[in-house]
């Protein structure tokens, strides 16, 4: 039996914030005056106008000795070498993904197959990666214009199979030692530094050897795992919109 549909009025909105009585740091808006003392140095996210230091981004103030900078609350993802990212293939020509490049030469194929740079090799790639496919990868290097070069050399990385993708602000993902977690509740989660979170059923160690390039689309995820994944998805969303 279907449930009753409920439309909530905005005036009845529930404040889901966990931090109810916590004090928030002051947030500067672009153009807002930070300080008029001239002994301070201009850092990132600030500019000087008529000897007054002003914020050029919306964010919180950070101070190291005399250097004042404003750290933006939300910003576009700026990659760093070693970051784990989750992304969607947008073009299989130059192996481009969003603004990042996954080079042919930096992909491991199932079974440790040896690869040569050749035209046949490029054609082969289409069998493994297609437009729309989701992959997890590591940032190999950052170009001067900010675009990233990725690699999936380790068997941990590769194509992603069945699961849910959640997008949050990149600034909410903290860089940590490991971004791959097998949660005890029966699901796996990949926290991409670029704000994309991948939630899927627990990854089987045996299957992992192929880097996700062999997928079993017949497999039906049991109801219980679905419920777990659903809950974790909700948690991720509610934490990110808190």
């Amino acid at each position: 039996m279907s449930k009753k549909i409920h439309i909530r009025l905005a005036s009845q909105r529930v404040n889901t914030s966990v931090a109810v009585n916590q004090r928030y740091p002051k947030i500067f808006t672009p153009g807002q005056e930070i300080t008029s003392h001239n002994e301070f140095m201009r850092g990132h996210g600030t500019y000087e106008e008529d000897t007054v230091l002003k914020a050029s981004v919306a964010g919180v103030r950070e101070q190291v000795n005399n250097l004042i900078s404003v750290r933006p609350l939300k910003s576009r993802y700026n990659g760093d070498i070693g970051d784990v990212v989750v992304g969607r293939i947008t073009e299989v020509q130059q192996k481009k993904m969003e603004n990042s490049v996954l080079l042919l030469s930096s992909v491991n194929l199932p079974g440790g197959e040896l690869r040569r740079r050749s035209v046949e090799d490029e054609h082969m790639m289409r069998q493994f990666l297609q437009e729309g496919d989701l992959i997890s990868a590591e940032v190999q290097s950052v170009y001067s214009d900010g675009s990233l070069s990725l690699h999936t050399r380790s068997l941990r990385y590769g194509k992603l199979s069945q699961g849910v993708l959640v997008t949050v602000f990149p600034s909410l993902i903290k860089r940590s030692k490991t971004h791959f977690h097998n949660l005890p509740v029966g699901a796996s989660i990949i926290l991409g530094n670029n704000g994309l979170i991948w939630i899927c059923p627990t990854i089987n160690k045996v299957e992992e050897g192929v880097g996700g390039f062999v997928q079993n689309l017949e497999e039906v995820i049991p109801r219980q795992e679905r419920e777990t994944i659903g809950r974790i998805t909700k948690l991720c969303i509610s934490f990110s919109t808190e």
Binding site: G132, R226, K234
Partner: peptide, 23 residues
């Protein structure tokens, strides 16, 4: 946004199960 086959399968099975991806 284009979905990959595996994601589509996940959504499809969820609908069959009467338990969609967002529960």
């Amino acid at each position: 946004m284009a979905l990959c086959e595996a994601e589509k399968t996940f959504v499809l099975h969820g609908v069959e199960e009467n338990f969609r991806i967002d529960g």
